[in-house]
C-alpha cells in the first residue's frame, strides 16, 4: 500500500498540488487520472521519489519515503519498477542489455540466470526473440512492452507507469492495459498508472484518483464512474462530443445520429 498524505508541491509561484490525500491499494491497479496540467505526472514523480513534496508525506506501508536515508531509499527503489512515458530505453544497448541492466547493477546472478530471467520477462510481454535488437529497430508498442519487461525484471513490489498508452493506437493501448493488469494480478504487484485514456479508466481502474487543478476531485472504482454525480468526473470522462452523444443516446435523451 502506498499512501499520499497532504501532498503539496509548488514551483516558484505555481502551486501544482494542493493537499493530496489518497491511498493506493496493495495488489490493485490504481489509476491517477485528470486533464493535462492537473498535476498527475508531478504526483507520480513524488510517489516514486524523483521529486520531493513541498509539504506532506508518502508512505510505503509504514516507511515514510521522505525520511529514508540514501541506503534505505536504494533498498526501497529495488522494489520499484517504472514504465516511462517515452519508455526511457537506453539507445546504445540492445533489448536484452536494457532488460538485464538492473540485474547487472544489483544482483550477483550468473550469466545463465540473467539470460533465463530476460527470456522469461520478454515472454511475459510476448516479445520473445527480439533480444539482440536495438530500441530504434522496434516499434513504439514493442518499446513499451520492453519497458514493462525491464520494469518487472527485479520482481518489483510496486509498478509505476506514466501514460503507458500515449502515442499508441487504440488496439495496442488495450493490449498494454491488459498486460499491465495481468502482470499486476499474476505477481501481486501494487500498480499505479498515470493516464488520461478513457478506455484504461473503464477497463482496468480498480482504484481511481481524479486530479483537478492539483486537488483530489473524485475517487472510486471503474464501476462507480458512470453513475457518479461528480460533474468534474463526468466532464472529464465525456469530454468528446462523440461520447456525449453516446451518453445522451444511452439515457434515451437524444435521437441525433452519432
Amino acid at each position: 500500500m502506498i499512501r499520499a498524505e497532504g501532498i503539496h508541491k509548488s514551483f516558484d509561484e505555481n502551486h501544482v498540488l494542493k493537499g493530496i490525500d489518497f491511498t493506493f491499494e496493495a495488489s490493485k491497479t490504481n489509476l491517477i487520472i485528470g486533464k493535462s496540467g492537473a498535476g498527475k505526472t508531478v504526483l507520480l514523480k513524488i510517489l516514486v521519489g524523483l521529486m520531493n513534496p513541498s509539504q506532506g508525506h508518502v508512505w510505503y506501508d509504514d516507511q515514510d519515503l521522505c525520511d529514508l536515508n540514501k541506503n534505505e531509499l536504494i533498498k526501497l527503489r529495488m522494489q520499484v519498477g517504472m514504465l516511462f512515458q517515452g519508455n526511457a530505453l537506453f539507445d546504445s544497448m540492445t533489448v536484452e542489455e536494457n532488460i538485464r541492466f538492473p540485474m547487472d547493477m544489483f544482483t550477483k546472478m550468473t550469466e545463465g540466470e540473467k539470460k533465463k530471467r530476460v527470456d522469461y520477462c520478454l515472454e511475459q510481454v510476448s516479445m520473445e526473440g527480439i533480444n539482440n535488437k536495438f530500441p530504434s529497430e522496434i516499434s513504439g508498442g514493442m518499446q513499451k512492452r520492453v519497458g514493462i519487461a525491464r520494469a518487472i525484471v527485479l520482481k518489483p513490489k510496486y509498478l509505476f507507469a506514466d501514460e503507458p498508452n500515449s502515442g499508441l493506437d487504440p488496439k495496442t493501448a488495450i493490449t498494454i492495459d491488459a498486460l499491465l493488469t495481468d502482470i499486476t494480478n499474476a505477481n501481486n504487484i501494487t500498480t499505479i498508472i498515470n493516464t488520461h485514456d478513457m478506455n484504461s479508466v473503464m477497463e482496468i481502474g480498480e482504484n481511481i484518483c481524479l486530479l483537478h487543478f492539483g486537488k483530489l476531485a473524485w475517487q472510486g472504482t471503474k464501476d462507480e464512474v458512470l453513475d457518479s454525480p461528480n460533474e468534474i468526473l463526468q466532464d472529464f470522462i465525456f469530454a468528446s462530443p462523440f461520447l456525449q452523444k453516446l451518453k445522451a443516446r444511452a439515457m434515451g435523451n437524444s435521437s441525433t445520429p452519432l
Binding site: 526511457a88 547493477m105 544489483f106
Partner: peptide
Amino acid sequence: QKEHIDAMEIMGVN
C-alpha cells in the same frame, strides 16, 4: 531529457 537518468534513479542507480 529522455528520462534515462530518472529511469536509472528509479532502479536505485547512483
